[in-house]
């Protein structure tokens, strides 16, 4: 199933145009598998040559490709670097909205808001005389900011880890 062990060497010789060498031609006479390989390699080589001649020059040259790659790489690095900032731009207003919402909720004398306040006071959530709802509000704001910071940090670190893994 694997052919002749000299197949790779024969193939190299055919590609290098050295299949007329005595050792190669002697082997080709005695090995039908390598004869088949050599014949196929010669025909494929001729086909490839004619095809390349027909292909002509590429539509873009090396300089254009280099610049395209350079610009795309620079753009991806810029995106990577500014990703955290863009997240922060979204996260900060979001966190402030949440905080403002909680504050508004606690300021309004609705029955269930009173229930929440009562629950907080019942659990003894007071620090140095501060009411429970103020403490809860501070904790919510701190959690929201910590969460968004952690998210932004992770988002910034992830592309770097991927780049390291690829290289």
């Amino acid at each position: 199933m694997n052919g002749c062990p000299r197949e790779a060497a024969i193939l190299r010789a055919v590609r290098a145009g050295a299949d007329g060498d005595l050792s190669v031609s002697e082997h080709l006479e005695s090995c039908s598998s390598c004869r088949e390989t050599a014949s196929l390699a010669r025909r494929l080589g001729a086909l490839a040559l004619s095809e390349r001649a027909q292909l002509g020059e590429p539509q873009v040259n090396a300089t254009q490709v280099w610049w395209k790659a350079y610009l795309r790489r620079r753009r991806s690095r810029t995106d990577e670097a500014t990703g955290a900032l863009r997240i922060a731009e979204l996260a900060v207003p979001l966190a402030l909205t949440v905080v403002a919402g909680v504050a508004a909720l606690l300021a309004m004398p609705t029955p269930w808001q009173q229930a929440v306040r009562g629950l907080l006071e019942e659990t003894g959530a007071t620090v140095a005389g501060a009411p429970g709802w103020a403490l809860a509000l501070s904790a919510a704001a701190a959690l929201a900011l910590a969460g968004t910071s952690a998210w932004a940090l992770l988002h910034r670190l992830r592309p770097r880890a991927e780049t390291t893994r690829k290289s």
């Binding site: 490839a48 095809e51 390349r52 292909l55 090396a62 300089t63 290289s167």
Partner: peptide
């Protein structure tokens, strides 16, 4: 590692591999 290939080196690499690659892909 990690640095983009310099233009002369890329030119040499491109010149030697572009035609065979296009032929293969065709």
């Amino acid at each position: 590692p990690g640095e983009i290939m310099e233009p002369p080196a890329f030119q040499a690499f491109y010149d030697s591999t572009s035609a065979p690659l296009r032929s293969y892909l065709t």
